[in-house]
Amino acid sequence: MVRSIFFFAQWLIARRRTWLRILTWITRFGYWLFILYGLLEWFRPRPIAEQIKRRKTLVYCLFSVIPGSSVSWVIGKIWHRPRPFACGDAAALVPHKANASFPSNHSMNSLAISLMLLARRNPWGLPALVWTGVLASSRILSGLHYVSDVIGGFFIGAAASHVVYHSKRCSQLADHILYYWHVGTAVVETWWRKC
């Protein structure tokens, strides 16, 4: 029954050019919203105390992606699960290489970032979490991942986010990165004024 509904949804989307374009865009480029948000948030002017807090949150987000991506890489080396379209379990509505399907890196990384934003009480945490759901659903609906790939990605992303958030070493490293960033920008600004 569920499989029939899935194939019907794929058939319906494939027949509607606008829906297919939207699905393709979300599936292929949806994660760029996280990157764009990070860049805008990093460089947006604001009072220094708030700027440091927001930038530390962004560094934490980056840190939470690194262990999850490392675990995903190891899993991909140990076990190569074919993608649904490669097994004939779904049609590929969005072109993609037939590389390993498990876990869904898009789902994993977007959830890790969303949970970190929520844990650090960032106002964009909840919208990011909603977008994570949209992105994960698009990966399934487009035939690129099984539901279990997304759930596995969510589990790894949540674990990575939790470990980073509670790590004192990550907090110290984030403080060092921000310190050197601010020293470096102060030096560049001073040099720029003298030129």
Rank of each mutant, 00 (worst) to 15 (best):
Tyr31Met: 10
Tyr146Arg: 04
Leu173Ser: 06
Ser137Thr: 12
Arg16Phe: 13
Leu58Tyr: 00
Lys97Phe: 08
Ala98Lys: 13
Ile113Asp: 05
Val94Phe: 11
Ser104Ile: 06
Arg169Pro: 00
Ile52Lys: 11
Thr27Trp: 10
Phe154Pro: 05
Pro45Glu: 06
Pro123Gln: 12
Pro103Asp: 03
Lys56Pro: 03
Phe6Met: 08
Gly125Pro: 05
Cys170Met: 10
Ile22Lys: 10
Ala186Met: 01
Ala100Asn: 04
Ala174Lys: 00
Tyr179Trp: 11
Ser171Trp: 04
Asn99Phe: 08
Ser171Asp: 14
Ala159Leu: 15
Val134Tyr: 05
Ser148Lys: 10
Ser64Cys: 05
Arg21Cys: 12
Ala90Gly: 01
Ala90Arg: 02
Pro67Thr: 07
Ser104Val: 08
Ile13Asp: 01
Met108His: 04
Val150Trp: 01
His106Pro: 10
Gly38Asp: 06
Pro103Cys: 03
Gly125Tyr: 04
Trp124Pro: 05
Arg16Tyr: 12
Phe154Gly: 09
Phe6Glu: 02
Leu36Asp: 07
Trp192Leu: 09
Val188Trp: 03
Ser107Ala: 15
Cys87Gly: 01
Glu41Ser: 13
Thr18Gln: 13
Arg120Glu: 12
Ile113Gly: 03
Ala128Cys: 10
Phe155Met: 09
Trp42Met: 01
Arg54Phe: 03
Leu33His: 11
Ala186Ser: 11
Leu118Pro: 00
Ser72Gly: 10
